[in-house]
Each structure stands twice: as structure tokens, then as C-alpha cells.
């Protein structure tokens, strides 16, 4: 598996799209830091960018990568290696290279702005962790969609719907339900609704690190109230990990049954 991962990673890291993706984070981070002139505000600004953008790019890149590498995978299937190593290697290579782009692109400007000497180092690290989690989760989900759909158009359509659902539609549905059932106690429902959307989950995860979590909306306040900051962090990391592990497991399972 390590070899597949290595080659996939080397292949991807040289592609122009990834260089562009890294450059994008460099520019946005520099822009945000210059505009705010302050690390904590910049982390929050960047948070709003990444929780929408990382899922979008990971989803699109994941599905494109899957379809583009189909024939390469067929070549690998003819080698004396198990399917598990092939697909885990491919998926990890993809997620790791996108994560590297993101981490390198944001880390460099923040280091120049002295993030290591600032009081907000942990907040920034949380931002990086959330970004990496989101990359793995959405790469995994879209790779899985590719694996399950030989029809490219259907695969692309479903992948875009997946992003649209978690990034935009989901919050709308939750808000409408909250308004409609406002007479009922909704704490548990709200908590649960956050746990089952990785985007909301990452938002809360970073917000909990800021002591003012309660200011950032209902769910942040709830998490703070229920778990206190540190337990809340543990719960959100556990949920994010589950969100990363389950698609990975499903990728292996689907790949083992598939005809190529």
C-alpha cells in the first residue's frame, strides 16, 4: 500500500491544479492577514472560507481523480497486490496531497506573521486540523461515489449534490425545523444535527477553541453548555474521526466486490 500511496502522491503533487490550490491558500491567507492585521480574526475569516471551499474542492477533486485514474487502477489490479492496498493507497495519496496543499498554503503566511509567538497558535492549529479532517472526509465520500457509479455523469452529479447538501441545504433544513418546532425542547436535536454534518462539526470544533463560542450561534453555545470546551473538543474530534473512518471502510468494502 505504501508504494501505491507514494506514487499517487508524487503524481498528484506535480499536477498544476494542486499548485494552483496551494497558491490560492497562500493568497487568501496573506490577504486575510493583511486585512485583519490580527491572527485570531484571521483564523475566523479563514474558517469561513475553508468550511465551504475544502469540501467543494475535495469533492470535485476526489471524483475527478477517481475517474481519471480508473485505467491506472486497472493496471494495478493486474499486479500481485490486494485490492485493499490499491484503493487505500489511492485514497490516502489523494487526501494527503490535498491536505498538504492546504497546510503548506496557509502555514507559510501565518508563520511569517508570527503565529508561533502569538497566543492564538492553538486556534490556528485547530483550523489546520479541521481542514485536514474535511479534506479526508469529502475525498472519501466522493471517491466512494465514484467507485459505486461507473456512469461519470451520475457520479459527478451525486458528488455535487453531496457538497450542496452538507454545505448549504442542510443548514436550511435545520433552521426551518428549529423554527417550526420551536415549542419543543430542541437541544438534543440540534446537537445531533451538528454531529451528522461534518461541515457544522468542524465549525463548532474551531469555535469551541475560542472562549466566545456562545457568541457564534446556537450550536456553539449548546456544545459549550453540554460538554464544556475540552469535552466538546473530544466529542467533535471523535465524530470527525468516525466521519473519516466510515467512508474509508466503505471504499475497501465496495472495491472488494466490484468488477473492473
Amino acid at each position: 500500500m505504501n508504494k501505491i500511496l507514494k506514487y499517487g502522491f508524487l503524481d498528484l503533487i506535480r499536477s498544476n491544479w494542486l499548485i494552483l490550490y496551494t497558491a490560492f491558500y497562500l493568497i487568501v491567507s496573506v490577504g486575510v492577514l493583511m486585512a485583519n492585521g490580527d491572527i485570531s480574526k484571521s483564523v475566523i475569516s479563514l474558517l469561513n472560507v475553508i468550511i465551504i471551499l475544502i469540501p467543494l474542492i475535495a469533492t470535485l477533486y476526489g471524483i475527478i481523480y477517481y475517474y481519471n485514474s480508473r485505467d491506472y487502477v486497472e493496471m494495478l489490479l493486474a499486479q500481485p497486490i490486494t485490492r485493499k492496498s490499491i484503493f487505500m493507497g489511492q485514497f490516502l495519496g489523494l487526501s494527503l496531497s490535498l491536505s498538504t496543499s492546504f497546510v503548506v498554503g496557509t502555514l507559510i503566511p501565518f508563520v511569517f506573521f508570527g503565529v508561533f509567538r502569538s497566543a492564538y497558535l492553538m486556534h490556528f492549529l485547530f483550523l489546520l486540523i479541521a481542514g485536514v479532517f474535511l479534506t479526508f472526509i469529502f475525498c472519501g465520500l466522493s471517491y466512494l461515489l465514484g467507485l459505486a457509479n461507473d456512469n461519470k455523469l451520475k457520479g459527478f452529479g451525486l458528488a455535487i449534490l453531496l457538497w450542496l447538501f452538507f454545505a448549504i441545504v442542510y443548514d436550511g433544513v435545520v433552521v426551518i425545523s428549529l423554527v417550526k418546532y420551536e415549542d419543543y425542547p430542541l437541544e438534543k436535536f440540534t446537537m445531533l444535527s451538528t454531529l451528522i454534518n461534518p461541515i457544522d462539526l468542524s465549525r463548532v470544533f474551531i469555535m469551541l477553541k475560542f472562549d466566545t463560542a456562545a457568541l457564534f450561534g446556537y450550536t456553539g453555545a449548546l456544545f459549550n453548555k453540554f460538554f464544556g470546551s475540552s469535552l466538546g473538543v473530544i466529542v467533535s474530534v471523535a465524530a470527525l474521526s468516525l466521519w473519516s473512518i466510515i467512508p474509508t471502510w466503505l471504499i475497501v468494502r465496495t472495491a472488494n466486490k466490484k468488477d473492473f
Partner: peptide, 20 residues
């Protein structure tokens, strides 16, 4: 999967990583 190490196989359509 190990037995594939004893076979040379040319698929009908073979594409490889294009950046290599």
C-alpha cells in the same frame, strides 16, 4: 492476489498515470 506475480498481462485499453 499473489499469483498475479507469475502473469504478464496486457489489458485491452491501458492508460497509466499521465504525468509520469
Amino acid at each position: 492476489s499473489n499469483y498475479r506475480g507469475t502473469i504478464d498481462y496486457l489489458p485491452q485499453i491501458s492508460r497509466h498515470p499521465q504525468n509520469l
